[in-house]
Design a binder for these strands. Structure first.
Lengths: 261, 261
DNA sequence: AAGTGGTCTAGACCACCGA
DNA sequence: CGGTGGTCTAGACCACTTT
């Protein structure tokens, strides 16, 4: 019945390297629904026997599927099709907190604190926050989860002058700032893509090398003072950020022509 | 002189798997500037001898560095530290074309066409463009480069009613639309991260699995009619998208209560 | 204790590049 | 042509999970 791993149809030179043929077979089986989330694959040694390939080649074929989060491997247990992660869509042009954003969706939010305290700033923080000599920085580092699924790593730095008591933050940073009349009204974000390192991948429960969104944010008070400098890592397979664009201001085409000239 | 690959300090059990120790050594050498862009690494077989590891292990240690774009391997030639790619920052909240955006930076723009013509739409295009039965779609697929470096893959679909002659587009799509009075004034984008597949990675000249930004955009005319549906892939290591946020309006109770701002 | 994935080896052949 | 990376093998031991 399960001819997914039959030795037939594995011919070198036919359609590229053997490990890619295997990769394609499994990827198609997942895409077509033949392999469903939670299904287990045969043990690597078993696949090797069935396909007539070596175990090294089997692992190489599986590797990319693990790296892209489609398969999950558990030592001592087995290889499984990854559970489907519901994609969340988040508006980028509004300044909201994670807590508020999730509450609006009616979802549970959990935080796992990695670090919460006052420290000596690193140069990056001095720059972003505009700190003076001797100023200390409040650092909040946590993994954000929703319904038990880790979605993001958030590393926030604030001037100690703004948040002298980081331990006071239990859930929502913005909630506390808001209660103190320090809610940011403007922020600038930079978004890029990155491959997760072993550490961050582990925190998010995905494989090393999985694509993630890196978002750096600097938030400002009405007065122009910097409130926070946050570096976040969002799971690429769990998030869509949405943004609405307006027509570029200025006299459209002629502007580009002038500047290009 | 070059003790990067000396057998000393390679001890199992000491600090994790051997391939990770090798990975760390090389990554640190790159980060510290000891290995500079363009430098070549010794051949794999040579590294294996120097370190006392097997070639398979050497390759495994190098693998992640290639996947993340820090090293480039050329068959028949060697392994090299990747040239530094200058990060471009692009404003997300303005609706500009790639051509205009680059011209504004005073950079050369090249396009390599992969496809340009009229086709029968796929369901995804019918949905996004609001096509009727029998409508055809203009498809523009190209690799965008700047100063010879591939930066993005752009796959645009437009109703044939908007662009009956896709061959007319030589450089800027928006330029042609603008000249015809069809310039979009509003667009909605969705941004996510993805691992590049072998095909797209090759088009962008990076390794399979490298993180990239996937941006889907739907653009509208003043009349509300959909002009284009574009799926783009941007190199994660070459782009920063910037967006400015405003205070979320009327989102939670506490804000409504204390709101003066 | 048995079975799983994780790591590692030594050696082989191929495809491609450059002199 | 020689040297490079790309693929593949058979077999070994380890660390962990499950039973």
């Amino acid at each position: 019945m399960n001819d997914l791993f039959s030795a037939k149809n594995f011919s070198d030179g036919d359609s590229g390297p053997l490990y890619l043929q295997l990769h394609r077979r499994i990827a198609e089986a997942i895409a077509s629904g033949r392999l469903k989330p939670g299904d287990s694959l045969p043990p690597e040694r078993e696949m090797a026997i069935q396909t007539g390939l070596s175990r090294v080649t089997i692992r190489k074929g599986i590797e990319a599927l693990v790296a892209s989060g489609q398969l999950v491997q558990k030592r001592g247990s087995g290889t499984f099709v990854a559970p489907k992660v519901e994609r969340l869509e988040q508006a980028l042009s509004l300044l909201t907190s994670f807590t508020e954003d999730m509450a609006r969706r009616g979802r549970q939010v959990e935080s796992h604190w990695l670090m919460r305290g006052l420290h000596a700033p690193v140069p990056e923080e001095v720059m972003a926050l505009g700190l003076g000599a001797g100023d200390r920085v409040a650092r909040l580092e946590r993994v954000r989860s929703s319904d038990g699924v880790p979605l993001a790593i958030e590393r926030a730095s604030l001037p100690a002058a703004i948040l002298p008591d980081p331990q006071a933050i239990e859930f929502s940073l913005y909630g506390v700032l808001n209660a103190r009349g320090l809610r940011p009204v403007r922020a600038v974000q930079r978004i890029s893509a990155t491959n997760l390192g072993p550490k961050d991948a582990d925190l998010l429960g995905v494989g090393t090398g999985v694509a993630a969104l890196r978002i750096e944010r600097v938030s400002y008070l009405e007065t122009g003072q910097v409130v926070e400098f946050t570096r976040s890592i969002y799971r690429g397979d769990a998030y869509d950020f949405a943004v609405e664009l307006k027509l570029a201001s200025g006299d459209d085409r002629s502007e580009a022509e002038r500047n290009g000239a």
